[in-house]
Simulated scan of single mutants.
Amino acid sequence: MSTVLPNVTMIAAVGRNGVIGDGLTMPWHLSEDLKFFKRTTMGHPMVMGRRTFDSMGALPGRRSIVITRQTGWSARGVEVAHSLPEALALVAGAEQVFVVGGGEVYRQAMAYAARLLVTEVDQSPDGSVTFPPIDPVDWVETARDEHPGFAWVTYERRG
C-alpha cells in the first residue's frame, strides 16, 4: 500500500469516456484549459511519463521529472527517474507537486495523490490512454467551475 502525500496533485483533462489521449497527442485543444494548466503548475515540479514528455517537452518555469524504464535515456532540461517512488523522492521537499500524465503514471500516482484537478471535457474521443476511475469511496468533489464544453473539477481524498 502506498502512502498519500499531501503535496501531490494529479492534473488531467479527461473525456466523458475516460480518454485522455491516443498515446501521442491530446484529443482536443482547449486554450482556456491550457492557460489553466500553465498558471496552476507554474513554479512547481511536474512528474510525467516519457511519452507525455515527448508530446509536450520541458515547459518553462517548471521543474520536469520524467519517468522512464529506458536506462541511459536523457533529455535537456529534465531530471530522470525510473519509477514513480523515485520521482516523488526527487521532489519530496516541494510545497506542491503535479503529476501530469500519462495513463500509467496516473494509475500509479492515484495511491499517492491528495488532490485531483480534472478538466471534465464534454467529448468522448477515440483513444487508448485513459485516466483511472475516480472512486467516490476515496474521493469527494469539492469544487466545480462550469464552462461551455468543459468543467474544472477538484477532488480531495477522503479521510
Rank of each mutant, 00 (worst) to 15 (best):
H29D: 02
M56G: 13
R39H: 12
R50A: 05
A87W: 01
R76C: 15
P60T: 14
A13W: 08
L30M: 05
P27V: 05
T40Q: 02
G77C: 08
G21Y: 13
N17H: 03
H44T: 04
R16C: 09
V66W: 12
G43A: 02
M56N: 09
R62Q: 06
R69Y: 02
D22C: 14
L90F: 09
T40S: 06
H82Y: 03
N17P: 01
L34E: 05
A58D: 01
T52M: 12
A58S: 07
T71I: 15
E86L: 09
G77M: 05
K38W: 08
G23S: 04
N17R: 04
L34N: 10
I11A: 11
L84N: 04
T68K: 12
G72V: 02
W73R: 01
I67E: 00
M48L: 13
A12P: 14
L84D: 00
D22P: 04
R63E: 08
A75V: 12
I65Y: 04
L90I: 03
V91W: 10
R69W: 06
L34C: 14
S64C: 13
H82F: 02
T68G: 09
R39G: 07
I65Q: 03
G43S: 02
I20V: 09
I67L: 07
Q70V: 06
L88N: 00
L30C: 10
K35I: 12
V47F: 06
F37M: 05
Q70S: 13
Q70T: 13
R76K: 15
K35G: 12
A81H: 06
R63G: 12
F36H: 15
R63K: 14
D22N: 12
W28H: 11
G43M: 02
E86K: 15
S55F: 00
H44Q: 07
E86T: 06
R39F: 15
A87E: 03
A87V: 03
S64G: 12
G18W: 00
K38L: 13
R39E: 12
G49V: 04
L59Y: 05
G61D: 04
D33P: 14
L90K: 15
P45S: 02
G72L: 05
M42I: 13
